[in-house]
Design a protein around this nucleic acid. Sequence first.
DNA 1: AATAGACTCAACCGCTCGCAG
DNA 2: CCTGCGAGCGGTTGAGTCTAT
Length: 307
Amino acid sequence: MGRPPCCDKVGIKKGPWTPEEDVVLVSYIQENGPGNWRSVPINTDRSMMLLHAGLMRCSKSCRLRWTNYLRPGIKRGNFTAHEEGIIVHLQSLLGNRWAAIASYLPQRTDNDIKNYWNTHLKKKLAAANSSSSSSISKRHAIFADDSTTVVSSGASKPPEVTQMAIARRSPFADCPSSYASSMNNISKLLDGFMMKTTSPLPPPPPPYGDATYDVKPAIEVANPLTSFDRMSGTGGDLAFYDVHPYQQQPASLSFMEHGGYVDESKQLNQAPLLSSIEDWLFDEAAAEQVADLMDLSDGCCFVPMMF
DNA sequence: AATAGACTCAACCGCTCGCAG
DNA sequence: CCTGCGAGCGGTTGAGTCTAT
């Protein structure tokens, strides 16, 4: 079962992406838009090879790189206590459906959330569980097994319905504006790339959590990525994500037109239907219990509309 | 200072889903 | 309805980094 891997082709590069490759991919997406992986230039070969301007990567790898790293609006670095609470809350509800969880935190990628869960939150919850059998776990029977995929709190509604409601309630309109868009990261990256043409050693990309990496730099006029503002519609202020569930007001659609978050936009058009489990999801008391369980009170910024 | 072990996270792999022909 | 293909998802891996000894 399953199809042969798309990257078996001889000559297709694998492994870490170089800044040069990022630039090539970004340039390509600037021209063709994200999500058009099917329509990437195919060089006489019907395989999924992206052979654009010398980028020898398969489309799968390109898509992953774009969605997990280069996509505009991605927040990188430390997860806030608020985000942790949301993730724990949603994981208990949806199980390891990281894409669904990520749809509620559009600035985080499913990969990022998955990694963070596996490396941080799982341990936190395990420690909390071992120390005390909390009321939250009793109430919802959710933290006993990390691989839980079905919530045992009596939800009869299909997960996708729940997802829709979750997506409708995106709290992003309330998110602080301190998020760094990956556009800025790319801008930095491009700076490095361009400097490379004049200096032998471009500055290495700052490490995770580096404040300078997250602080919005001035995007140089000469930077080809400046047009990302137009493409993404964010204008650098993440207006794209400003989707209030009840306003039903489409955010900037230019990015969606290129295939970004189409699912969410579809979901937003669904009629609101709140099950009891969804009520629980947004139940303030439940969230507080999660926060207590995880001891997330320090610097916590639970958004009032959420919790 | 050197080394081993633990940790992190970007990227890959295998699979399913959905659509087009 | 069947088949093939691209997109997307979740699990896993392994190289790089950090920390403890």
